[in-house]
Computed example of a mutant assay.
Amino acid sequence: MRLPKLLVIASVAILLSACQSLFKPDLNEPLKPKRITWEHRPAGCSAADCPLVNIDTLKFGDEHLNAIIEQALLEKTQTEPGAPVASSLNAYEQEFLRNAQPRWSSYLQANVREQHDALVIIELSSYLDTGGAHGQPGRGILNYDRQQKKVLTLQDILVPGQEKAFWDMAKTAHQAWLIANNLKDDSAFEKEWPFIKTSNIALDFGAVTLKYDVTSIAPYSMGHPLIKIPYPQLNGIVRPEYFPGRRAQ
């Protein structure tokens, strides 16, 4: 018995749709990067104070993401805003070791902080020691959206017109941080280390996290301060699709 033409077309369409769903990447399935590490000193240098470069980074199956991570690490090597950066990590290593003095060192690292809701949250770490009293550590955050294949900006994350409300909420969270660290009644501390904005914002599963560089809102001895804003406080401020568990694929 011959099937009606329209029924055949409908059946083929259903099969094609099923195949597309079957082979579509599951964006909730965590990516599994390969860790790439090396540490080099100048050729022929075997002394205890040889300068060194230590790289500890990640390679994903997503070459676009790999390029973003490498460029972000290279930008962590800038010693002043707007300074030029090397074309690659290998080029940076060669340049650093060519000009480095004994005991100088440079460390660059990328780690997966979290993965959820089609987001890969990468934390970047750097440490540069050029012989001062102590080295200079740095941090960076990349919220990579696998659906859009881009790093999210704050404007991407927030509901339009809500940037002031976001930072007002961050100031409230900073007050909670002061209380938790027994600093709320220390007027001298608050005067010397007032609240400021940061570009290091992570869409963590449990809360939106603000991570600060050393000596930004606290002395060097306190490391990298973390301020957390619970998602319920950000209703109407953060776009609904960036609340954990709310994103449709």
Score class of each variant (00 low, 15 high):
residue 232 P to A: 10
residue 120 V to L: 05
residue 205 F to H: 13
residue 214 V to N: 06
residue 38 W to K: 11
residue 111 N to A: 10
residue 21 S to K: 14
residue 86 A to F: 00
residue 95 E to P: 00
residue 9 I to F: 13
residue 44 G to V: 04
residue 51 P to N: 03
residue 108 L to Y: 04
residue 145 D to H: 01
residue 52 L to C: 06
residue 144 Y to V: 03
residue 92 Y to D: 00
residue 185 D to Y: 08
residue 134 H to E: 04
residue 99 N to H: 15
residue 175 Q to P: 00
residue 149 K to S: 14
residue 38 W to F: 14
residue 227 I to A: 07
residue 58 L to F: 02
residue 221 S to C: 05
residue 101 Q to S: 14
residue 157 I to D: 04
residue 86 A to C: 06
residue 77 T to I: 00
residue 186 D to N: 11
residue 104 W to S: 10
residue 15 L to T: 14
residue 236 G to H: 12
residue 124 L to P: 09
residue 249 Q to A: 13
residue 170 A to F: 13
residue 130 T to C: 11
residue 65 L to V: 07
residue 89 L to G: 01
residue 222 M to Y: 13
residue 192 E to L: 09
residue 90 N to G: 14
residue 140 G to H: 05
residue 63 E to A: 11
residue 69 I to L: 08
residue 209 T to L: 12
residue 165 A to C: 04
residue 233 Q to L: 15
residue 130 T to Y: 09
residue 66 N to D: 12
residue 6 L to A: 13
residue 114 E to T: 08
residue 34 K to V: 12
residue 213 D to L: 08
residue 112 V to L: 11
residue 44 G to W: 06
residue 135 G to A: 02
residue 136 Q to T: 13
residue 87 S to D: 07
residue 63 E to H: 10
residue 75 E to W: 03
residue 67 A to C: 02
residue 64 H to L: 14
residue 55 I to T: 00
residue 145 D to C: 02
residue 202 A to V: 03
residue 21 S to L: 14
residue 236 G to D: 07
residue 206 G to S: 09
residue 99 N to K: 15
residue 221 S to P: 00
residue 78 Q to V: 04
residue 86 A to R: 03
residue 241 E to F: 10
residue 54 N to V: 08
residue 147 Q to D: 05
residue 101 Q to H: 13
residue 242 Y to V: 07
residue 37 T to V: 14
residue 107 Y to L: 12
residue 213 D to T: 11
residue 173 A to L: 06
residue 33 P to L: 05
residue 108 L to W: 04
residue 48 A to T: 10
residue 241 E to N: 12
residue 76 K to T: 09
residue 146 R to T: 04
residue 245 G to N: 08
residue 159 V to T: 15
residue 44 G to E: 00
residue 54 N to G: 02
residue 69 I to K: 02
residue 137 P to N: 01
residue 43 A to L: 08
residue 156 D to I: 01
residue 141 I to A: 02
residue 91 A to N: 04
residue 135 G to V: 03
residue 9 I to L: 15
residue 67 A to K: 11
residue 76 K to R: 13
residue 52 L to Q: 07
residue 208 V to L: 15
residue 113 R to S: 09
residue 147 Q to C: 06
residue 190 E to K: 04
residue 228 K to V: 12
residue 56 D to T: 06
residue 198 T to H: 03
residue 178 L to I: 09
residue 145 D to N: 08
residue 71 Q to K: 15
residue 203 L to N: 04
residue 56 D to H: 08
residue 221 S to N: 10
residue 22 L to Y: 14
residue 72 A to E: 11
residue 74 L to T: 06
residue 247 R to T: 14
residue 128 L to T: 07
residue 88 S to A: 05
residue 124 L to N: 08
residue 125 S to Q: 11
residue 128 L to D: 09
residue 189 F to W: 14
residue 44 G to M: 06
residue 191 K to S: 05
residue 172 T to L: 15
residue 194 P to M: 01
residue 164 K to A: 15
